[in-house]
Simulated assay, not measured.
Amino acid sequence: MTRLAVIRGNSLNPYEMQNYSPIEGVHFFGTLAKTELKHPNTHLLKSYNNLACRALGLQYYQPSLSKELRELDPDFVNTLELYNYDSFTGVRHAVKNNKRSVVTCWETLPSHPVFTKTIFRRYFRKYILENASFFHVPTNKARDCLLELGCPDDRIVLQHYGIDLSKFKFKKQEHEVFTYLFIGRLEQEKGIKQTIKAFNKLDNDSQLLILGNGSLRGFVEESARANKGIKYLGVKPYTEVPGVHAMADVFVLPSIPHRLWEEQYGMVFLESMAAGNPVISTSTGAIPEVVSDKEGILVKPDSVGELVKAMRLLYNDRKRLKRMSRNCRKRAERDYDAGRVAERLVKLFYS
């Protein structure tokens, strides 16, 4: 049986990994951090993230990773990003054992300091760019980033990620109370403040559900106490997320980019579309690649006025809402089915 080692370190999560789980012979490598990923071939390794490791750019350093790879002897190695120790270790293992390696790259900002922060990271980037068999990107924004970092275009392959569509039921009708939904980190860059401000300006009979955690949790809880239409759902395991999407009519996540971050993909957008919920977001990062004007409305970042207008539009124009809802599910089935993505990844890795 062909063995595929998917190395993700501290980034091991069920969102991305659902695209790999159907692949026969796959093994996941991550740190001992808590993970919701449930797979029999999951290897959780001890890692170090002390001050010295962070200063050297060796966050979540896994000294046993090389040994684990030697014992598994994978036929193919898939790692994450250009600047991680575990990515360097995976590519180096492939080179030493005459195996193939692919590096998945999400990052869209070539000027981000993660690429040059320390001498180790600069070395990792150089080694990986020179020695990885090829590079996998989920968006054209990530492709452009790699090109600017010096990666040849003929070694970059674009393949979107998807989700398990069977867990997301396409709703047949609207809810008794029109419902907007926000799912994400409760941080400034996710636009949670703008979402609440916009909702407070609406003059319709609707509610806003919020799921997530972060530094602005107190602001969200206070807003929920001040406006009975706002309901904070706290934090839920990923297995319960499909049920939350089923409670909504429209999904709202108005991301706001800054110097060190922009939306790289947004798996939650795929979930929303799978549930048939049109998306209201911003025209930043890779969002326009994931959500078109057939499935949602993209507004300017940090514009409460445009956000209010979009939220009102989908509330008032129910024909447009239903049309977008059908388009969402069609797009999810066409482009974002994790089962089909797994088949494409197999062809990508083993061809």
Rank of each mutant, 00 (worst) to 15 (best):
M17W: 03
N19Y: 11
S21W: 09
S21K: 15
P22H: 04
G25L: 00
G25I: 01
V26W: 00
H27V: 12
F28M: 12
F29V: 03
A33P: 06
N41C: 12
S47E: 03
N49L: 07
N49D: 14
A52H: 11
A52P: 04
P63L: 03
L65G: 00
R70W: 14
D73N: 14
D73G: 08
D75I: 04
D75R: 04
L80K: 07
E81S: 05
Y85N: 13
Y85R: 10
S87P: 00
S87H: 01
T89Y: 02
G90C: 12
V95P: 08
V95N: 09
K99M: 09
V103T: 02
V103K: 00
C105R: 08
P110K: 00
P110E: 01
P110F: 00
V114Y: 13
T118H: 07
R121P: 08
R122D: 08
F124R: 09
R125G: 05
I128K: 07
L129W: 01
N131I: 04
N131Q: 10
F134T: 11
F135L: 00
F135N: 00
P138F: 12
P138G: 11
N140V: 12
K141I: 07
D144P: 02
C151D: 03
D153H: 15
L158I: 11
H160P: 07
K167I: 09
K171Y: 14
Y180F: 14
L181N: 01
L181S: 01
G184R: 04
E187G: 06
E189P: 05
G191V: 05
I192M: 08
T195D: 02
F199Y: 14
D205E: 15
S206D: 09
S206I: 10
Q207H: 04
L209D: 02
I210K: 10
R217N: 11
F219H: 05
A224T: 08
K228L: 13
K228R: 14
G229V: 05
Y232F: 15
G234R: 06
K236H: 14
P237S: 01
V241C: 03
D249Q: 13
I256K: 11
H258Y: 10
R259I: 01
L260R: 12
L260Q: 13
E271G: 06
E271F: 08
A275S: 15
A275P: 03
A275K: 06
P278N: 07
G285Y: 11
I287V: 15
P288M: 09
S292Y: 06
K294Q: 14
K294G: 13
K309W: 15
L314Q: 01
L314V: 05
L314R: 00
Y315T: 06
D317K: 05
K319Q: 09
K319V: 06
K319S: 09
R320Y: 13
L321R: 13
S325C: 01
R326S: 10
N327S: 08
C328H: 03
A332N: 02
D335P: 03
Y336D: 06
Y336P: 03
R340N: 11
V341E: 08
A342T: 00
R344H: 12
L345G: 03
L345V: 13
L345W: 02
L348A: 03
F349N: 01
Y350D: 08
